[in-house]
């Protein structure tokens, strides 16, 4: 070896295969996935429904174990969830018996740290996503978008090195979704964390990412990686530029090609 890679990847998946069930009912959800996630980048997993995106993400997060292949985080094999990794799901998962603030503080509570030390930070985050006024409200008093904002605050509270986001805004309407994506980019830049976003929306993937990993339909495998060279911070205007439209078309071609 001549040169040590200066930036060792944060996550490295090698030949990751996941099968569910056994015998006749066996189902290959993911087949031989090779993927590297670089520190600080924003990577999207783009693919049709059912192609194993969530499965791949859950394996990266340690919620599922791979049937074959290895997956490492900072060079260490992933065998269980890690606290440096924060996950967000399609559902906000707000507990109705906790106020917004208490929901945001949940990770701290689980980690057994002092809640008091984090209240200021939680308030700051709630302020940044514009729901500070609702810190003492209960989730059922919040709209779906507000709940996802709170979930975003929760995942950022303990400064995870890696954010794993499984269609976090998939259940929201188009307008809220766009606003939330902006919010997400801003907060990710602010916290300097690495992010992996699962989506099946091409425009969203291009707008958000530095790189897009395009996946094929079942059994899910990697079709290719698309580099997205646009500068940050990105504004909605970007979506009307020619380069942007070209990249979207390129991604669409890759999706349809397989």
């Amino acid at each position: 070896m001549t040169t040590m890679t200066q930036t060792a990847p944060l996550v490295r998946a090698e030949g990751v295969t996941k099968r569910f069930g056994s015998g006749e009912k066996e189902m290959v959800a993911l087949s031989g996935l090779n993927l590297e996630v670089q520190e600080g980048e924003f990577l999207s997993l783009l693919g049709p429904s059912g192609c194993g995106k969530s499965t791949a993400l859950n394996i990266m997060g340690g919620l599922l174990s791979a049937t074959e292949g290895t997956i490492t985080f900072s060079g260490e094999p992933m065998i269980e969830p890690r606290r440096e990794i924060g996950m967000m799901f399609q559902q906000a998962v707000m507990f109705p018996w906790r106020t917004t603030l208490d929901n945001v503080l949940l990770p701290v509570e689980i980690f057994g740290e002092k809640k008091k030390d984090y209240i200021a930070k939680a308030d700051e985050l709630l302020g940044m996503v514009g729901i500070k006024d609702f810190r003492d409200s209960y989730p059922w008093q919040l709209s779906g978008g507000m709940q996802q904002r709170a979930a975003l605050c929760r995942v950022l509270l303990h400064d995870p090195k890696l954010l794993l986001l499984d269609e976090p805004f998939g259940a929201l309407d188009e307008f809220t979704r766009e606003a939330m994506n902006q919010e997400l980019l801003r907060l990710q830049a602010y916290s300097g964390s690495t992010a992996v976003l699962v989506t099946h929306n091409i425009t969203e993937a291009v707008f958000m990412s530095d790189r897009i990993a395009v996946m094929s339909a079942r059994p899910g495998r990697l079709v290719g990686i698309l580099e997205v060279p646009f500068d940050r911070p990105r504004t909605p205007d970007l979506q009307t530029t020619n380069d942007f439209v070209k990249l979207v078309a390129e991604a669409r071609r890759m999706l349809e090609l397989q």
């Binding site: 919620l63 606290r83 799901f89 998962v93 949940l106 689980i110």
Partner: peptide, 9 residues
């Protein structure tokens, strides 16, 4: 909800 808790270890 269970997955969220698991992701937090």
């Amino acid at each position: 909800a269970i997955n969220l808790m698991r992701s937090l270890k």
